[in-house]
Design a protein around this nucleic acid. Structure first.
Length: 198
DNA sequence: ACCATGATCCGCT
DNA sequence: GCGGATCATGGTT
């Protein structure tokens, strides 16, 4: 349970996006702990028309321009949050969107965070828990307050996880964007049930 | 006016 | 059970 260090994050966004697959996203809440295995990511680079950083630094996207190792959380569609891992050097403006995780620990809490109940869980609702970027944020209670926090020390961090054989890593175009659709900047674990879309 | 989304509804198989 | 359309809802430009 040792957080990944700064030199993991201060590299090229595409490398980080690919290598985040299989690692564990961890959030400590009091005595409880939430853990999700990262199964789907998207890279947003500088000079990338799909990236929030493309039109320059603003109050909203400022964290994206910090050096690697911070969490960039943004609010969208009037009701959802999405979480990104900032990468590269200070001033660049690139980050990796966490699109989906596989619940590993704290599933009852994730369910409560998503639905406000602790009902019995079947396989379908287990998948619905975290198979999308805003679902993941809701399950892990990530919102405005988490924007700009450091992943190097504190209660939210990422640790080494399952080594994913490169055969099982697939890449594709990114989802839900209108520009930069030519780039294959989405990475996911083949056949994992929590990946948001084939 | 636009959105890096998700839940629901509706018409099909 | 599905795939596609629609809408909810608010910050940003």
């Amino acid at each position: 349970m040792k957080p990944l260090e700064e030199d993991f994050y201060t590299r090229n966004v595409l490398e980080v996006a690919r290598e985040l697959l299989g690692k564990y996203f961890v959030r400590k809440i009091g005595k409880k702990i939430l853990i999700g295995k990262i199964v789907e990511t998207e890279a947003y680079s500088s000079n990338d028309p799909a990236s929030h950083s493309y039109r320059g630094r603003t109050p909203r996207n400022d964290v994206m321009f910090w050096k690697g190792g911070y969490l960039y959380v943004y609010f969208t569609y009037g009701m959802h949050f999405c979480a990104n891992v900032v990468t590269g050097r200070e001033g660049i403006g690139e980050a990796v969107l966490i699109r989906a995780v596989e619940p590993i620990s704290g599933i009852d809490i994730m369910h409560y965070n998503r639905y406000g109940t602790k009902t019995k869980m079947n396989i379908k609702s287990l998948i619905e828990l975290t198979n999308g970027p805003a679902k993941f944020c809701q399950a892990f209670k990530i919102g405005r307050k988490e924007n700009g926090i450091s992943l190097l020390r504190g209660k939210i961090f990422i640790v080494e996880g399952d080594k994913i054989p490169s055969k099982l890593i697939r890449k594709s175009n990114r989802i839900g964007i209108k520009e930069g659709t030519d780039k294959e900047y989405r990475f996911f674990i083949n056949n994992n049930l929590w990946v948001s879309k084939k």
